[in-house]
Design a protein around this nucleic acid. Structure first.
Lengths: 212, 212
DNA sequence: ATGGATATTAGACTGGTCGTCTATAAAATG
DNA sequence: CATTTTATAGACGACCAGTCTAATATCCAT
């Protein structure tokens, strides 16, 4: 049925256009990040990402071995992006250590509101999906959380040294506690389309820090 | 291709067996609960549930209008089941109010370990999936959380009257805080296949309660 | 009872999606 | 300019959600 001799579409490697060097691979990653952050891995079809970027399947599977490999790469990308954001806040020496944590929280709140509470945390999303995800995701996701936790622990340690929290505080445990609860708060914020879960959690987190 | 005259399977309404009154509808709901609690809504195909129960599609769509209607019913079912569990603990007058909360937590921990950390909280799972779920789920999920929150607030109020926590404590806020964080803890427990996130969250929750 | 209405099951079928794979063509290489 | 590499186009097979028809047991009215 496809014997139409006049097929206007062109296939094969596209001619190089100097002016517009579109990096298809990067476009796919960016679109993937957006969609997966909203809908998760299993519920997202490749076609949706493909259509959004205007790229055919063939290109996708040229750049990525599989949907799974694509997802793993997104985890790395998001993890690194977020780590950078954390560092930007946690190493901001114009603020006290605890104020830096507050600043991160405000930043994150902004982000959620800006996207209409549709986008959550990619790592949290995929974590919830573990039951339907390839095992390969588990270590990566776990590792990402551990990385974020360490960065926060560093900031809390600075808070300790600045006498904002007690010397006896276990900063690792506190940091673990924070991310556990924060992910829950992001989930609820998405569900309720409101910032109040984030505020509720943040308020309690700060009030229960062991004071100097 | 289907012209085999010898089709051994029987169709039509099945003969009634007095001894074994299998309630197909209930079986479907139970199986759905198990599978969705592990894998979520989007990642689960009807066929998987059907095969597990040994029931054909026709039966499913006789009892339920759609997969969405089925899911909504599961939310109600799970919400009610869990509320009953909460009440069992929160109204156990052989324990002090705070000890009742601890007892619930131990119960939940048991449950997670018993199923190899594969099963999480259905409401949390679906909440995370909101981006890919019909809008009809939002109110139901939100309402379920609110219901659980009220029950916990009742128990915390008893704790206040028993002088286990301060008179000034805002039990509603504390209950909200608990469920926000608890869902995050369940997520992490599934991811890490370990109880420690649950312990970490619970420990901090109790230590940060405003003491009398 | 008996015959029509109802309840329940069997599973084919349709339209759509998902992920893989092959064919094709431009660019790079030498 | 021939060969290899890079990138695109889209066909293909498997699967899935939901619908529909057929079949058959039970229920109920007369």
């Amino acid at each position: 049925m496809d014997t139409h001799p006049t097929s206007p579409r062109r296939r094969g490697r596209p001619p190089k256009q100097r002016d517009e060097l579109v990096d298809t691979r990067a476009l796919l990653l960016r679109a993937g990040l957006e969609v997966l952050t909203e809908k998760g891995f299993s519920a997202t079809g490749l076609d949706e990402i493909l259509k959004q970027v205007g790229v055919p399947k063939g290109s996708f599977y040229h750049y990525f071995d599989s949907k799974e490999a694509f997802g793993l790469e997104l985890v790395s990308l998001y993890g690194a992006f977020f780590a950078k954001k954390l560092d930007r806040h946690f190493h901001n020496h114009t603020l006290s250590p605890l104020a830096r944590v507050r600043a991160f929280i405000d930043d994150a709140k902004d982000g959620m509101a800006r996207y209409g509470y549709r986008r959550g945390c990619l790592i949290g999303n995929l974590g919830q999906e573990m039951g339907a995800l390839p095992e390969s995701f588990r270590l990566r996701l776990h590792g990402t959380f551990k990385d974020w936790q360490d960065r926060l622990a560093g900031c809390l340690n600075a808070a300790r040294q600045a006498n904002e929290i007690a010397d006896t505080a276990d900063v690792d445990q506190l940091a673990a506690f924070f991310w556990i609860g924060w992910e829950g708060a992001v989930l609820r914020a998405k569900l309720e389309q409101s910032l109040s879960p984030l505020d509720t959690f943040a308020d309690h987190f700060f009030t229960c820090l062991p004071r100097r």
